[in-house]
């Protein structure tokens, strides 16, 4: 259902869509049931058909069953939803699987700064590649991001990954994602960040390893010593897949 609306391009997109579908099915069931009962009663007990109303207090044991059973069933549905929701949440927000690459994301008024680890595969070194509004990733690699905000709150959101996390000034928030489909996806800011909030959006490019290396080569200055090690690492990881 969700995939027909928007691409699902990360490893956990399916799990989050699953939560959505579970809620849709259980919630939809109750919604339809309640609406059906409501309209059936309105139709059946209208004055022209039923001129004299019954006297029902709704406080005898027999009558309270009509409240208690739905009550218990709703509770049961809640528990089912809870299990799915917390599992997905734990997987996406609390777990940190073994990572292949790191990327630093900084929200500014009104652009994203993406710091790629560069050829050596490490953040905070001289060969980091910092790009505005473009995030370049390799398909099927697990990325850890470090999210910061330079001025006000922003929200790092990749709808196609089913991912969202606010960037808070003064905090560094980490998380992970693993793109599973090549292509180009939106990275809008989804938290009000001022006048330019509506233009703040980048693109994430999910590349094959070859494309990624081409992109990286175009960014690394020729004068820099050849970062063989980093490239090797990427290739090695590729082999290990």
């Amino acid at each position: 259902m969700m995939e027909s609306l928007i691409a699902a391009a990360s490893s956990y997109a399916g799990q989050i869509d699953q939560v959505t579908h579970v809620v849709a099915i259980l919630g939809g069931f109750w919604l339809l049931l309640a609406e059906a009962a409501l309209f059936y009663f309105v139709f059946k007990y209208r004055r022209s058909r039923n001129p004299k109303a019954e006297y029902i207090t709704g406080e005898t044991k027999q009558q309270m069953k009509w409240i208690h059973w739905p009550h218990n069933l709703v509770l049961l549905c809640d528990i089912v939803i809870l299990v799915f929701a917390v599992r997905a949440w734990y997987h996406v927000k609390q777990e940190m699987p073994p990572i292949d690459e790191e990327v630093r994301v900084v929200g500014h008024q009104w652009a994203w700064e993406f710091v790629h680890s560069g050829p050596d595969g490490k953040l905070g070194t001289d060969d980091d590649v910092s790009v505005v509004d473009e995030l370049h990733l390799i398909v099927n690699k697990t990325y850890k991001f470090k999210l910061e905000a330079a001025d006000v709150l922003h929200s790092f959101s990749i709808p196609a990954f089913r991912f969202k996390q606010d960037a808070v000034p003064g905090r560094q928030i980490s998380g992970w994602f693993k793109p599973t489909k090549t292509g180009q996806y939106d990275v809008p800011c989804s938290q009000m960040c001022g006048i330019g909030h509506g233009i703040m959006g980048g693109q994430v490019y999910v590349h094959t390893p070859e494309e990624y290396r081409q992109w990286l080569d175009s960014k690394v200055p020729k004068s820099a010593s050849l970062p063989v090690k980093g490239v090797d690492r990427i290739a090695m990881n590729q082999g290990g897949m």
Binding site: W30, A34, A37, L38, F41, Y45, R47, I56, H71
Partner: peptide, 23 residues
């Protein structure tokens, strides 16, 4: 999710009020 229980209960009560009514 717990808070959905009393709220649905309230709505069921309202729908139940219509049972056997003369609307």
């Amino acid at each position: 999710l717990l808070i959905s229980v009393p709220v649905t209960e309230m709505l069921f009560v309202y729908i139940g009020t219509l049972y056997g009514a003369s609307i």
